[in-house]
């Protein structure tokens, strides 16, 4: 089983490097730019905070964009959050279907490994990549913050990035579950899910009728502005996220271990 896991991890190393360079690099640049835009931001912070729904959606009513926390939450947080979610969706929504899409399923399943072990290896590879993405990006961001010499509340920072990791894993597992139904690669579905959940979270923050259902989107419990302003996590949303994750994983096992493989 470890051999398959190793193989899957290896197959997505290039994708991982590209996404880490993009998200981590952009985050680093944003952080380093903060000192140069700090003064002009202090003048704009009030305007940003009074833009009504726009300010609510992006959490600028909760945090001042003139502070590193606020700037990090609105700029770096968004890049990391969306970038990680898209990366998770891209690798996981083809993880199972790619074997049939590329006609490699007969080679893979002629090896004496049960389908459940194949699923576990692939899911393990998805989670490993998501963990590495988050870990490397955080290291890069921390380096940026250290270079900048600004203060960052450690507790909120840690909670935010742990929730980001959980959210990325949730999206990865949802897409992985969807992949179990597919016989062809459908990367667009994964990206569509990410954009829908992100847009839904923004809308739920603006439209009062949707605010009670905000918890449906995993972006709700990993929102930078909420975490940096309160230091807490929306536990209802997190629990729903964990349940969705477990259900998606069980679905992947049940569907993929039983169905006929396409050639």
């Amino acid at each position: 089983m470890f051999e398959l896991y190793k193989h899957e991890v290896k197959m997505y190393i290039k994708t991982l490097i590209i996404w880490v360079l993009c998200a981590g690099g952009m985050g680093m640049v944003c952080i380093l730019l903060f000192s140069s835009v700090k003064d002009s931001m202090s003048g704009m912070a009030e305007s940003f905070a009074s833009m009504g729904a726009f300010s609510d959606a992006f959490g600028m009513t909760q945090l001042s964009i003139a502070t590193l926390q606020g700037f990090y939450a609105t700029e770096v947080g968004m890049v990391h959050s969306l970038g990680g979610a898209m990366f998770a969706a891209i690798i996981s929504c083809v993880m199972l279907s790619k074997e049939e899409d590329a006609h490699t399923s007969e080679f893979l399943f002629s090896l004496p490994v049960s389908r459940n072990k194949v699923i576990t290896s692939k899911l393990g590879a998805v989670i490993t990549h998501i963990v590495i993405y988050n870990l490397v990006c955080v290291i890069v961001y921390v380096m940026g913050i250290v270079i900048l010499g600004e203060e960052m509340p450690i507790k909120e920072y840690c909670i935010f990035h742990i929730m980001q990791l959980v959210m990325h894993i949730e999206i990865g597992v949802i897409c992985f579950g969807i992949s179990a139904f597919m016989k062809r690669n459908r990367m667009g579905i994964g990206l569509g899910i990410v954009l829908f959940l992100y847009a839904y979270d923004l809308m739920a923050r603006v439209i009062p009728d949707l605010s009670d259902f905000k918890v449906i989107s995993p972006f709700s419990y990993a929102n930078a502005a909420d975490i940096f302003s309160t230091g807490e996590v929306d536990m209802t949303a997190l629990m729903i996220g964990i349940i969705v994750m477990v259900v998606s994983a069980i679905t992947a096992y049940r569907v993929y271990s039983k169905r006929d493989l396409a050639t």
């Binding site: 051999e3 193989h7 197959m11 006609h103 007969e106 080679f107 004496p112 490994v113």
Partner: peptide, 27 residues
């Protein structure tokens, strides 16, 4: 069992020796 499918398809980015070694290691 040694099975040879009609479609001999493998992972495109891998080298021949990697595929052969992987098949042996999995066993």
């Amino acid at each position: 069992v040694g099975y040879m499918p009609s479609e001999a398809m493998f992972y495109q980015s891998a080298k021949v020796k990697e595929i052969i070694k992987m098949a042996a290691n999995v066993r």
